[in-house]
């Protein structure tokens, strides 16, 4: 189908709170398909909160709530009566620290999303698990020990396992919250390579504190500061000719 593809994700006036503190002061931002968007900015400026608003995970934080409009493929995910569970089935998430489910094997970890959402079983389930592990570039390392505990893998492998787990349900959007900050450089390079591969299928929104990483793998970059979106544009432009002085100062390392 060749329908003109509108913005995959459209955020309008998004405000997020914890108790009575406003964390995000009204964010407007759009993301198209097959893009990698990097979110940069000092710690505590709301990048993670922003990401967590997109799959409605922020409201699971004690005291957390959000206002505004976030539409995924034209549908407002904050519209009343929308079940956050359905949203999370279409927007995957990878966390800062790898969090494989400790009671499950490698296979079961990847299968868990498929089982939860009753997407596949039997032979098809096995095929989907293998496909997801291949997509996450982990298959060759684990194909002989699918029954081993997910916790037995190295940190980098665990993170790729979590990516495979998120990819198994084929979400159109994948959120990554500093996915490499707990990993060594080699594992980091593998995950970056993976992100570039994955964007053909999945749009990726990634928070990172690593400027080089943002420059290497993202198509567009968003710079957050104190709960505001200061600048948002093509990565090359943001990094070479930023239009806001604060962006330039941050990127060149003068603060943050």
């Amino acid at each position: 189908m060749m329908t003109p593809s509108p913005a995959l994700l459209e955020v309008k006036g998004l405000k997020a709170y914890v108790e009575s503190t406003e964390i995000l002061h009204g964010i407007d931002l759009g993301v198209s398909r097959q893009e990698v968007v990097a979110f940069i900015g000092p710690s505590g400026c709301g990048k993670s909160t922003f990401l967590r608003c997109l799959n409605r995970l922020h409201e699971e934080t004690p005291g957390g709530r959000a206002e505004g409009r976030v539409s995924l493929e034209g549908q407002d995910i904050y519209a009343s009566g929308t079940d956050p569970v359905r949203i999370r089935r279409r927007i995957g998430m990878v966390f800062q620290k790898p969090n494989p489910f400790p009671s499950m094997s490698i296979f079961e970890n990847v299968a868990s999303g498929l089982r939860l959402n009753r997407i596949a079983k039997g032979v098809e389930l096995e095929a989907r698990v293998e496909a997801a592990l291949r997509e996450a570039a982990l298959w060759n390392e684990v194909k002989d020990k699918l029954d081993a505990s997910g916790m037995s893998l190295s940190g980098g492998q665990q993170q790729r396992l979590c990516i495979a787990r998120a990819l198994a349900v084929k979400p159109p959007v994948l959120l990554m919250d500093e996915p490499t900050s707990a990993l060594d450089p080699v594992s980091t390079a593998k995950i970056e390579e993976l992100v570039i591969q994955l964007k053909k299928e999945t749009t990726i929104l990634m928070v990172t504190h690593n400027m080089q990483q943002a420059a290497r793998i993202s198509d567009r970059t968003a710079f957050f500061l104190y709960g505001d979106l200061v600048e948002y544009g093509p990565t090359t432009k943001v990094f070479t000719t930023p239009s806001d002085r604060r962006t330039e100062e941050y990127i060149t390392g003068r603060f943050g």
């Binding site: 999370r88 089935r89 998430m93 969090n99 349900v169």
Partner: peptide, 10 residues
């Protein structure tokens, strides 16, 4: 993060 990981899978 573990609990959120399960929630994030839908």
């Amino acid at each position: 993060p573990l609990k959120e990981g399960v929630l994030a899978l839908g």
